[in-house]
Nucleic acid binder design. Structure first.
Lengths: 338, 338
DNA sequence: ATGGTTTGTGCAACCGGTTGCAATCCTCGA
DNA sequence: TCGAGGATTGCAACCGGTTGCACAAACCAT
């Protein structure tokens, strides 16, 4: 006990009276080695609680068994991207899935304006692939990654004309579910508070919103539609604009929980009760949704599943080259805000 | 352009007409090499945008230049620890500080009940040290880490009788600032909603609460004190208990923003207005604090600074063995809830 | 001209696993 | 009794940097 003198497979080999190769094979459960020799070697290894040196192993194997989660710092002192909570919840699922698959998770702090960032991770052998959700300059990054044949997977609607792995949620249905729920609650002046207008997610949710309205025989009113950038600040601004443009609105479908929270803040400040006067539906089902006042009705994207798929499918691609594009269902979570 | 054929320092050596050693030294800016040779080698390296193989380098150097951020999955499907948001905000700062120092950040998903987890990261040469904020079984982990002489730093009040690096916030002052603010607002029935009663943070904040009340000539009422576990759920439960025990309370000092959010929820549900009827002060200044309704008055711990110090001081310890214990100031952020 | 420094570079071993190929031992059938 | 073929294991090269030490060239003073 104490300082270990047994550190390498050569030590184990000496103790067991076999060669390095045999130890290496035994620990990797190679069929070449007899069961009884394996047992003996494993026993000695356990006894000295031997841990393999991953640097050496990675060098030999020419792979890192490490995945990078790409994030980019924001202007405001070392923070994360605007996704914040969203990102964290995903990170948890990704992390545990990867560890199940014996991969490590690296947090890669990238500079979104430097197209060469993947080199620093890939060419150095640090990681075997990337997971990204970066909404900032998404197309740009995807383009460069495809060009340099880097293995990666992205959260979000896949871009046309590119082939790469992705995990996407059923945004059209999400938009429809939210809108249908509001209609069913008797709302007739339902505002759409979208994410950035040019992002696929926003477009699809808007399409779902429109479809639900049409089905209910309603018109789409331009004064009830505004686009923001997912943040609570933009939620506040858009809510003010919506109230000015349409003082009679009785519901809001916000494209993110953060925007919904901002919107509710403004509504409270203006003396509108939620949900009595204005019903609010969010999107994402972040952990804060339950904590809002009132608790937020929202569209759940099953983040644990998303994280798991991101990890699994990326690794599948790294190891076999299979490109997957999956779409996961959206669910309505009814709480008190609508 | 395209497939790189220049991958190793041996390739660079060949192209430059020197030996591997010279290339290695040149790229590491060794004083042994003449300035002009360095220039030539660097030029060739840039031209072929050569990237060093970190596995090989780490194997040779016997160090990983990687730090593990220890987190543990929760019962609920792949989630993170209860700190959630808190953790994320810290992570951003840690990540960018580490990358400045040329260290990588690994997310280590640990099993809080397995005392051997550090071996898997340390003895394998995966990482050079750990950062932990784990409140779950903190003493246990710290004990085992100290015992195995693992390099680590922890967020929180250092345990007595152990020597290790830590970054702590001025909880006493935080507790006092919060309480003084409420007193100054004319509140006289101020409840204390603490974290777990046996944690240093909670004790110190409580001491600050008591000190402020004493200075104001007030008594400490046991019916106004309850302890939870930092989560919003516990915030809701404790709030209910407090309202039952002391229906006349006019303020709550919650030890976390999450608890404060839960408390506000209950207050709204019971028809108490915040801040008119009951003022609420939180703790942490998470990004959600601004988004709450009403925006939460809280104690800020300057998380970016905390993250930076955690990273810097751990590396300093790893490289030089210097043990630091720093305390950072607490600030009151006044918003609308109190 | 000669011996002692610097200064700059190369050789080769080493970090700790992995793996193609050769070598050894057994078993079994003819 | 002898060789073919299968089961095990060892040898040695290799992955790609790093570094102690030897060595050669240039510089200096005597």
């Amino acid at each position: 006990m104490g300082l270990k003198t047994v550190k390498t497979i050569a030590d184990i080999a000496r103790l067991t009276g076999v060669s390095k190769s045999t130890v290496s094979r035994a620990l990797n459960d190679s069929p070449l080695i007899s069961e009884e020799t394996k047992e003996r070697i494993r026993a000695v290894a356990k006894e000295h609680n031997f841990q393999i040196n991953v640097s050496a192993s990675r060098l030999s194997l020419q792979q890192s068994r490490t995945i990078a989660f790409a994030v980019h710092a924001q202007k405001n002192c070392g923070g994360f991207s605007l996704n914040d909570l969203f990102l964290l919840e995903l990170l948890g699922a990704i992390s545990s899935t990867l560890s199940t698959l014996h991969y490590d998770l690296l947090v890669a702090n990238i500079n979104p304006h430097d197209p060469a960032w993947p080199h620093e991770y890939l060419d150095t052998g640090r990681v075997d692939g990337f997971i990204l959700l970066t909404s900032t300059r998404k197309k740009f990054h995807i383009g460069t990654l495809v060009k340099m044949k880097a293995p990666f997977i992205v959260w979000g609607t896949p871009l046309p004309n590119y082939s790469y792995c992705s995990v996407n949620s059923d945004n059209f249905n999400g938009g429809r579910l939210a809108t249908e729920h509001l209609l069913q609650k008797g709302r007739r002046r339902i505002a759409f508070m979208g994410g950035p207008a040019d992002e696929g997610e926003t477009e699809q949710r808007y399409a779902g919103y429109v479809a639900a309205l049409k089905e209910a025989g309603q018109e789409v009113a331009p004064t009830l539609v505004r686009y923001g950038d997912w943040t609570s600040d933009s939620g506040m601004e858009r809510m003010q604009q919506l109230l000015e443009a349409s003082p009679d609105l009785d519901a809001v479908f916000a494209n993110s929980d953060l925007m919904a929270a901002g919107a509710m803040n403004v509504l409270h400040a203006r003396g509108r009760r939620v949900p009595q006067d204005v019903a609010v539906v969010g999107y994402d089902d972040l952990s804060i949704a339950r904590v809002n006042s009132p608790p937020l009705t929202t569209i759940s994207q099953n983040l644990p599943l998303v994280g798991k798929l991101l990890a699994q499918n990326l690794i599948q691609y790294v190891e076999t080259g299979v490109v997957t594009n999956v779409t996961i269902p959206a669910h309505l979570i009814v709480r008190e805000s609508a």
